[in-house]
């Protein structure tokens, strides 16, 4: 291992790093926002960051056919997440409906 391994700049690496940054952004906002909707959005951004790691890892460089299995994982993940998001939003609406503004 070289002292500072900096591999060649490929699309795969760029989107990999973007995925890592998205995970960081989403975690930060998820932990520091008190708005229910922002927290739900943060979880969605987090899952997109994870999906970016999968999709970038599946890519084998220009010209090569990418691995279909992680693509299937991400497809499954997208559908799972929309279901959970719908549940979260329904809960958030109920909380908004039943209570005053206080967060008790």
């Amino acid at each position: 291992m070289t002292p500072f391994p900096f591999p060649d700049l490929t699309p795969q690496l760029i989107y990999h790093l973007a995925g890592a940054a998205l995970v960081g952004i989403a975690l930060y906002r998820g932990a520091t926002s008190s708005d229910l909707l922002t927290r739900i959005l943060a979880l969605n951004v987090l899952s997109v960051g994870i999906a970016a790691v999968f999709v970038a890892a599946a890519n084998r460089g220009a010209g090569a056919v990418p691995d279909p299995v992680p693509h299937a994982f991400v497809l499954t993940g997208i559908v799972v997440l929309v279901a959970v998001t719908a549940a979260l939003l329904a809960l958030a609406e109920r909380i908004d409906l039943t209570g005053a503004k206080s967060d008790d």
Binding site: P11, Q12, Y15, L37, I40, L41, N44, V48, A51, V55, A56, A58, N59, V65, P66, H71, V74, L75, I78, V79, L81, V82, T85, A86, L89
Partner: peptide, 22 residues
């Protein structure tokens, strides 16, 4: 990144439908 299936699903479900729900 050569993932058209995933891109289609993200545009339709992950972004479109989730955005509508939001």
């Amino acid at each position: 990144l050569d993932a058209p299936d995933v891109a289609l699903a993200e545009a339709a479900i992950g972004s479109g439908l989730t955005g509508a729900l939001m």
